[in-house]
Design a protein around this nucleic acid. Structure first.
Ligand SMILES: [Zn+2]
Ligand SMILES: [Zn+2]
Ligand SMILES: [Zn+2]
Ligand SMILES: [Zn+2]
Lengths: 146, 146
DNA sequence: GGCTTGTTGCGACTCAGTCTCGATAAATGG
DNA sequence: CCATTTATCGAGACTGAGTCGCAACAAGCC
């Protein structure tokens, strides 16, 4: 969803050092399909004997999330996962079959939220919307099985 | 947000046994303001020497959530919290000052989601929307301080 | 009151995520 | 290039939420 190069250059632009572990993270994330957990990256890095440290993976994900290069998603199971994405506010529609996620622009949502703010008197600072379902491909696969 | 009696009678109606620990949970939840964690309930129960077991609290919350008597909310911090609520699909607008939550009906959201489903070809099964902000009271308190 | 079976609590356990701290190595500037 | 500064890294100990297995208990029911 986001190229490894974009990650590296964004880090650089913000004054962070470009280190081997960070290049590794960028590559690992770029080759991921769908959502992934910190554990996923950790295992993958070991498999490619790029052996990233546990703390490093968590720290990097936190950093990347703060730069909107990656977004945290709380799966219905309670697991904390991430999806890589373009750096702009949007939401994700996650396939519960294959894990692939697509971005969803704010669209009509925006108006709906403003209306809610007006009705309740709350000053709405942030929001999180997560959608779960089956992508077209997984729907077909599903109906074939049954 | 939901009376202890409602919790008890809903459990009964669904064929679950009414036990002392479950009455305790109902009471603890009924007296809570805003969101709370499993730990919160555990501590509160100890303070009132109603000493619920750790596992019981987690199991009960899971049960109550399955009956929509309580809903799980993932706070921006990543903490897993709960809010008590009426048994119907809706979302929560949580005050980051005092923790109090108000329910938000689906409203226009529904149409927006259906539209998203059509555009993406996904079959949307579930969604989660969480809103965070400051309630009217906390806004006033805030502006006084500054 | 007895039986059946769902529920409880203890305590051991797992596992994600954090923290500390000495070692390492980017960036920068001469 | 080399030296300096300081961000970043990795190992491993640690924390704390949540789970699990199991023996004891007690609702609900006749
Ligand atoms: Zn899919
Ligand atoms: Zn949004
Ligand atoms: Zn408030
Ligand atoms: Zn909804």
């Amino acid at each position: 969803m986001v190229a490894g190069d974009t990650i590296v250059s964004t880090l650089q632009r913000h004054g962070y050092r470009i280190t081997a572990p960070r290049r590794g993270m960028a590559r690992l994330i770029a080759e991921r399909q769908g959502h992934f957990t910190a554990e996923d990256l950790l295992r993958a890095s070991r498999r490619q004997r790029a052996g990233l440290g546990r703390a490093t993976v968590f720290r990097s994900l936190e950093l990347l999330a703060s730069l909107d290069l990656v977004e945290r998603v709380d799966l219905p199971s309670g697991e904390h996962a991430y999806v890589s994405c373009e750096p702009a506010h949007h939401h994700h529609l996650v396939c519960s079959g294959c894990g692939r996620a697509v971005g969803v622009e704010e669209g009509d949502l925006d108006a709906a939220l403003r209306e809610i703010g007006r009705r309740t008197g709350y000053q709405i600072d942030s929001h999180r919307l997560e959608l779960f379902g089956l992508c077209a491909t997984c729907q077909r696969a599903d109906s074939k099985v049954n």
